[in-house]
Design a binder for these strands. Sequence first.
DNA 1: CGGCTAATTGACAACGTTACCAATTCGGAT
DNA 2: ATCCGAATTGGTAACGTTGTCAATTAGCCG
Lengths: 340, 340
Amino acid sequence: MTNRPTTTTEKPQRATLRDVATLAGVSEISVSRVMRNAPNISDGLRERVMDAANTLSYTPNRLAGALKNQSSNLVAVVLPSMSNDVFSTVLDGIDAVLDEHGLNAVLGLSEYDRDRELRVVRDLLSWSPMGIILTGLHHDETVAGMIAQLDIPVVQIMETEGRPLGSAVGMSHTKAAETAADFLFAKGYRRFGYIGAWSERPNRSRARRLAFEARLASMGAPLVAATILEERSSALAGSAATADLRARHPEIDCIFYANDDLALGGLFHALAEGIDVPNALGLMGFNGIGTGKATPLPLSSIQTPRYEIGAMAARLILRDPGEADRVVDLGFEIFEGGTT
Amino acid sequence: MTNRPTTTTEKPQRATLRDVATLAGVSEISVSRVMRNAPNISDGLRERVMDAANTLSYTPNRLAGALKNQSSNLVAVVLPSMSNDVFSTVLDGIDAVLDEHGLNAVLGLSEYDRDRELRVVRDLLSWSPMGIILTGLHHDETVAGMIAQLDIPVVQIMETEGRPLGSAVGMSHTKAAETAADFLFAKGYRRFGYIGAWSERPNRSRARRLAFEARLASMGAPLVAATILEERSSALAGSAATADLRARHPEIDCIFYANDDLALGGLFHALAEGIDVPNALGLMGFNGIGTGKATPLPLSSIQTPRYEIGAMAARLILRDPGEADRVVDLGFEIFEGGTT
DNA sequence: CGGCTAATTGACAACGTTACCAATTCGGAT
DNA sequence: ATCCGAATTGGTAACGTTGTCAATTAGCCG
């Protein structure tokens, strides 16, 4: 390797600074300085280097640069799941901002499992990312320790109620649930049901339900019944759970769902059964996904700013190192729709 | 840095092999061999090293290892978009298999833009990934050149008709469209419409439409009209486009959509207008997403194996280096549903 | 032309790990 | 106790780039 040929017509070989330098007739350091756009470079040198680099299809070896710098332009992104489009929209937002700044996301999925998250975080941190985006505010202490050891920016997404490890961006799930309770109560509903799934992973789903229940109780309309499915959310599961809940509690006049997938299922069930929505039964979801805007009765829902959460998370990662950590509450909106 | 203290209570410092070696009283090389599970290590050594590593919360610096090896355990994943749940499901499959083998995905989104894809690929390749997953079979020649230079496995996903750069996994979009045409014709439909979106990005969407048209023509039932929207797919867009197409061509008795989002919109429109589906109007989508299973009339659709495509792509990346490249056609299924 | 200053280019050593092979230790047989 | 072979441990130099500072060059002024 120390006497590598400057041109080779055999097995393809990745060009290095040395190859470009030889072809351009300059030092490796000059090639490096041109490629990273360092200041004080003559036009002549720049041109000779760029010509040589293009001729050799040179791409920098980021491993080497990151090792020397003890930092990379990777951002570790730990999401719980890609199984619905909530986090695909978040990831879209993250990638959009990272890409604008020449950074790449290296991805791990925790599947809402604490031990797996610990492992995923450890794996991703081994790449010396310049920052890490975690989902939710509750993690194993070891996760916090590992991140602290690297002293890199950490942004936690989706929730704002609690003590973040660094910065956080999301919304108040408690307030969202209370607002939903108020909204539905003001619509005249009095006998409420709730449908959740996947054993209330994540915790913020449970927090929403508890806040919803407490708010209703405080208004004198205690929750009639809640169904928490063990399976993951889906429209099919929501449809079946709605049928079951109403069979067991026909007095229920309104159901709040943990998310829109479940709520869409409830709506489809109601449409199929000829149930008078919203008059005999109100239905409200959570997230405000696109499909729910097009249903015959647009789905009432808490509209959550998922793309913006992702984009803001990336911006918080990218902020000036001297800037203090902060918690950004992006709020939510009520999408009134037609099902309540 | 050459005389770093072995313990520090100041700014957190990432532990290195040297730190662990000092604490364990062995060489750095022994620590390395323990951490990478090399053979022929005594239990005693292993225990001393693991104790020291755990005490110091040592995580390997993968940058260094990858630089030495001229390869990493990253897999570059270039997807066109995260804006619908097709690719989130694919990514789910990819991550599941990579994770089983201790690899991480580093992600780039091309937004169906050729120049952007070129840039994204270049960025991701600078991490010396051990493999790369691209979407579709058509890419700028420079992309092919860059990948060839690195001599790493490449897997292209979603399509199987054409010359892949390495291996490919997907399905035949031509055959899917022809099968849809046959299926709908056999159902008795004779006057067809087609609705696509986003100016038929990607090409395989266009290929499906052309094959659908050709098949209908060969059966004597030429396509009455096609609408190709400029905007991205959504249920709302599908709903509006369905209304528009039927207003301009009320004789149409069946519409085939580029994907399920559009088709769901068409179905919602039909439900809202009291159109007799499937008797007066048949509707068929593409992808077989979960929401379409729960609608009052389950959506007829070509069921595509998106998770399996992702998982197989990762397996093809991981196959033995000596194993020949191959094209894996995972096929598709007709989900009959209730809308045709 | 010479001297001085600013701009530009290049040298050095570092980053943390690992493949390969050498050196050392251990265990068994005589 | 000694010797030999196997098992185990450790040394070397390499990977490709970059921050810092030294060396060199270029430009300007008298």
